[in-house]
Design a protein around this nucleic acid. Structure first.
Length: 260
DNA sequence: ATGACCTGTTTAACAGGA
């Protein structure tokens, strides 16, 4: 089973690229972030025609997440628990049944957090604490479970072209790293590093300053697996070539194959 | 991580992104 995550940076601007990539990559499940659309504005029928079931958690103009699944969706959770006042659409989860096991998949768009001297940074850290509490509960089920998405966290120096230039950034600050380590310490496995820990495996290149031609990238899109999912991990890859397409997203897809 | 950007909203700049 192939499961992917991709921050598409706007469904209206990216629908053609997304269709092309789905046809090429043939994921069974795709977690999408930054759809930048209300739920009713998401072109679900386009993907239903391609054989996907579609769940959307949209918002006007900003954020927004969706999951496309070729397997029937048995349960869904819209939004991250823990703060009823949070109106930002950043989390969606589905439960599907594979031939061998139930499988729970959370798709997330973790807050950026910049600038760090504004309320945006404490919001990011509080959101990460909520994600920690949620993941803790899911891991207690001892089932295959994964959290896939745009974490807006650069895990280590090996994941950024010029680490020293990023030290004070919300994606790379010690407090951000501490919150990310706390999440991992629950027993989650970074799928990419489990199969290949080479440096410089980027998933995002800024539109500005020639970042793509100069390969000034960062790795911020991750799939974190429960022990039961990690046991079934076959491979993890980054579809870097989509960054070179016409009208690209600034992120590229990351996907795993699970033996389920 | 500094070149010279992109998207949505709305239809001229602005907010937000990373």
């Amino acid at each position: 089973m192939k499961i992917a995550t991709w921050n598409i940076n706007g469904i209206k601007a990216r629908i053609q690229n997304l269709k092309s990539w789905l046809e090429e990559a043939q994921p069974d499940i795709a977690c999408l972030q930054e759809i930048k659309s209300v739920s009713e504005g998401f072109p679900s029928s386009t993907f239903e025609d391609m054989g996907y079931n579609v769940v959307v958690h949209g918002q006007k103009s900003f954020n927004g997440v969706a999951i496309l699944s070729k397997l029937p969706i048995e349960e869904q959770q819209i939004g991250l628990p823990g703060d009823p006042s949070d109106e930002q659409a950043r989390f969606i989860e589905v439960l599907v049944s594979t031939p061998s096991t139930p499988l729970r998949i959370g798709g997330l768009y973790l807050p950026n957090g910049n600038p760090v001297d504004t309320e945006k940074y404490p919001y990011k850290l509080a959101w990460m604490e909520r994600l920690y509490q949620f993941a803790k509960g899911r891991l207690e089920l001892e089932e295959p479970f994964l959290l896939a998405g745009d974490y807006n966290i650069i895990p280590a120096d090996a994941d950024v072209h010029a680490p020293d230039a990023w030290r004070g950034d919300a994606l790379f600050r010690p407090e951000s790293h501490a919150a990310y380590r706390k999440l991992l310490s629950l027993g989650l496995t970074d799928a990419l590093y489990a199969v290949n820990d080479k440096p410089g495996q980027y998933t995002f290149w800024d539109y500005q300053a020639g970042a793509w031609p100069k390969n000034n990238g960062i790795r911020i899109d991750h799939l974190l697996l429960s022990p039961e999912a990690a046991d079934r991990l076959q491979t993890c890859q980054i579809d870097k070539h989509t960054r070179g397409w016409e009208k690209p997203s600034d992120h590229v897809p990351v996907w795993i194959k699970l033996d389920v």
